[in-house]
Design a protein around this nucleic acid. Structure first.
Lengths: 206, 206
DNA sequence: TAAAGAAGTGAACCATGATTCACATCTATT
DNA sequence: AATAGATGTGAATCATGGTTCACTTCTTTA
């Protein structure tokens, strides 16, 4: 034999993979998954279309990674708000979690819409479900705890958690799909927060 | 001249249009919008593909009509529950509306999923937004009334209405997209109803 | 520097499915 | 029955965009 991939080589490999992913996310942030095509990704990255396939098995895999990359941090933030280091009452943590989600979704703009609401191919939708479940799982755990400590009235944690996800997606993100971006989204945060508190904690304030 | 479309002709035209639409809805009910292709529609209707275009300008138009056809009745049912002939307290009407939506969605099964949650082409998504807005409009009016009569606590009717739509879509219909159909959906109705009542009316029962 | 294994290239290929169109057939009028 | 307008036909055409592949160009090792 006479060639072995070396550290430097593999670093370049990884860097290129990274670069592609970064470009892909930026395309999605601009034009959604709809705008993400292999040839455009190649063009913007400055390589040939075929080369993309040296780094990703298929477009589905690429989309999945883009999705993962863009969503993981979001989920982590919501998780951190739900289960902070400092102890806090469940209703406060719920409020914080909703707030964090909302603020970041608003900040994310087009990207948030792509991740949460944009119509996408079934393969991508599959990935999306994973992250919806991730959010739901966090909420569910929090609600369970709240019910146990009697901070929250008796309820189905799984249903309530899914409902929260639905609320956030529909109220906050779906409007981006329409021209409704006119509305100042930050005005939505407070009503949403209150709505969620009433629904989960049966009270108006944290 | 020597030919003028007559009543009988136009009746046949209309019947054919109707027949196509009916077949299209049935295809969507079986395999979603994903399964609706012009050639399949033609095949199942027993005509040539080209003929479909004598009745629909484009697939987008066809989908829009399918959507309209399948959704209009649903919206009407929810509207009727929200604004019944007999006077009733807003919280009761809210409960009824949610219940009707839920029961019909469960009955609708695959079709409900296609209408509410299935990933679809942007053109169809556009149509979907119209009907989401229709539901939201009904809820909004009802909530407004409830706030005015002090049955419901002060809140943003538009936000609360959108939230309701999100809840129903996510909790009830989205699971159909996964294999979660295992769960008996009718068990979801009561928790959802209670969740919505808490959120909107700040109480647990109608 | 020669050989082997990677990585890069981009035009060709393929799959899907909507849309068209030249032609045949039907229906209503004269 | 002859004709004009309408409708029906379905194979061919288009459009889009993912995927492949024969080939070139690097990298590393001997």
């Amino acid at each position: 034999m006479s060639y072995r991939p070396t550290a430097k080589t593999r670093a370049r490999q990884k860097a290129q993979h990274e670069s592609l992913l970064k470009t892909a996310v930026s395309i999605v942030a601009r034009d959604g998954f709809h705008g993400l095509t292999i040839s455009r990704l190649a063009r913007e990255t400055g390589i040939a279309t075929g080369t993309v396939y040296k780094y990703f098995d298929s477009k589905a895999h690429l989309c999945a990674e883009v999705f993962r990359r863009a969503t993981e941090r979001e989920v982590d933030m919501v998780r951190a708000a739900s289960f902070p280091d400092q102890p806090a009452p469940c209703r406060q943590r719920l409020t914080d979690a909703v707030t964090i989600f909302a603020e970041r979704a608003i900040l994310g703009g087009r990207l948030a819409y792509a991740l949460i609401a944009e119509p996408v191919a079934p393969a991508v939708e599959q990935e999306r479900l994973i992250y919806r479940k991730a959010y739901a799982g966090i909420f569910e755990q929090l609600i369970e705890e709240g019910v146990e400590t009697n901070e929250f009235p008796d309820q189905s944690p799984s249903v309530s958690a899914a409902a929260l996800v639905g609320i956030l997606a529909e109220v906050l993100v779906a409007p981006l799909g329409r021209g409704d971006a006119a509305t100042d989204q930050s005005l939505l945060i407070d009503p949403i927060r209150k709505f969620c508190l009433r629904a989960i904690a049966l009270r108006e304030t944290a």
